[in-house]
Design a protein around this nucleic acid. Structure first.
Lengths: 134, 134
DNA sequence: CTAAATCCTAGTAACCTAATAGGTTATATG
DNA sequence: CATATAACCTATTAGGTTACTAGGATTTAG
């Protein structure tokens, strides 16, 4: 797993929306300037989060985005998988994004990376947006 | 950390050399065909490993490569850092390759990824080539 | 001398990343 | 109803990285 800017921005946006859960719809520009994200870039991320049912949106004036789930129902793992794919350090030890890679021929080497995958995925499954609000 | 083909091949080559520690110099072509690595690609990796003092080489007929250290003195962490850089999931939580990234403004989010970095780096520091020979 | 090997740099096709651009559609409000 | 505002959607792009390949220079055993 390598966290891209994409994932990082998406997490920042979700954290912001979680902090403003009761404020109705919030625009991309508001989130972008609060969290320091290029707005047109954020737009794409919001759209993806909406399509994946983490967000609800409203068009037009007074429109914007809001969470479609409670912060506690959004594990960091989901967000990162959506934007960056596998949590595992290499695809051959990934459960959700398996592909063959060279280290597979060495069983003990593979085991080491599976242990790492397990730690990462357990950690990021159990940590939700609710857990990272100050 | 995302494991590249580069790192994976390098690890496979080191494992092969560790298994043949007492066989003198071994050529790139021998290692490449034993481990299924494109030989000209492996050549570059071997050169990097040599420059980082993990390998010794000899030119000419009967030449090739051999380990310059005992397998137990080569942590997987070193090899991966050499080819792929940071072990951390994002550079802002890396000790050796620090760079600023967006999540830094969220302290609790940063903490989660530091925990992951710690697990990965401890695991890969303590696991050596010697540990992954069957 | 010559074959076998490392040494070393350059090049390249394909892909990915982090954006930007610009038009379309929907809606609240004056 | 007009207008401003905002989401929706697709395309494009500059720059970087990845996984190689190519080919020559150098060294050495036999």
């Amino acid at each position: 797993m390598k966290l891209t800017t994409r994932s990082e921005y998406a997490l920042l946006a979700l954290v912001y929306l979680a902090r403003h859960e009761t404020d109705g719809y919030i625009s991309i520009d508001t989130i972008a300037s609060a969290q320091g994200i290029p707005p047109k870039f954020l737009e794409q991320l919001m759209l993806a989060l909406k399509r994946a049912h983490y967000l609800r949106s409203a068009k037009g004036q007074k429109g914007g985005y809001q969470l479609a789930k409670r912060p506690i129902q959004i594990p960091l793992a989901d967000v990162i998988r959506l934007f960056d794919g596998a949590l595992a350090p290499t695809e051959s030890v990934s459960e959700n994004f398996y592909e063959s890679t060279p280290i597979e021929k060495e069983k003990k080497l593979t085991k080491v990376f599976k242990d790492i995958r397990d730690y990462i995925s357990i950690k990021l499954e159990k940590t939700t947006i609710a857990d990272v609000l100050d």
